[in-house]
Design a protein around this nucleic acid. Structure first.
Length: 108
DNA sequence: CAGTTGACACCGT
DNA sequence: AACGGTGCCAACT
């Protein structure tokens, strides 16, 4: 928690997301101090996928609640299965009541 | 060293 | 309302 690079923070937050909760790129970016750099968050997760640790990035979606990077995961359907397993309803790669499951890092 | 990319977000047409 | 283009920051090639 010392040498927290931008990416490292993203990993921390992503791993910090409670089970059954989801968040958005903008929320994370804003928490990191880069409200306009939501793209960076996506990039970080892209690297997170290369990390040795498993990053529950399936809980991170865009503002639409759409599972944008599911293809970047272990599998295309694994992501949805994981979310459903956590109690999150997913329909066509989109989280139902996404806002209801929304988890704000700044609030945590 | 400079250019391109990256799983987005927002504004304008 | 739908679509396109631009803006953001950092890492990768």
């Amino acid at each position: 928690m010392t040498e927290e690079s931008f990416f490292q923070k993203v990993y921390q937050i992503t791993k910090m997301i409670p089970e059954g909760r989801v968040t958005t790129y903008g929320a994370i970016a804003r928490y990191l101090g880069a409200p306009g750099s939501a793209r960076m968050v996506g990039w970080a997760l892209n690297n997170a996928y290369s990390q040795d640790e498993f990053i529950p990035a399936h809980r991170v979606v865009n503002r639409n609640g759409c599972l944008t990077g599911k293809h970047h995961f272990h599998g295309p359907d694994v992501m949805q299965d994981l979310l459903e397993s956590e109690g999150i309803q997913v329909k066509k790669d989109k989280i139902i009541d996404f806002q209801q499951h929304f988890w704000d890092p700044n609030k945590a």
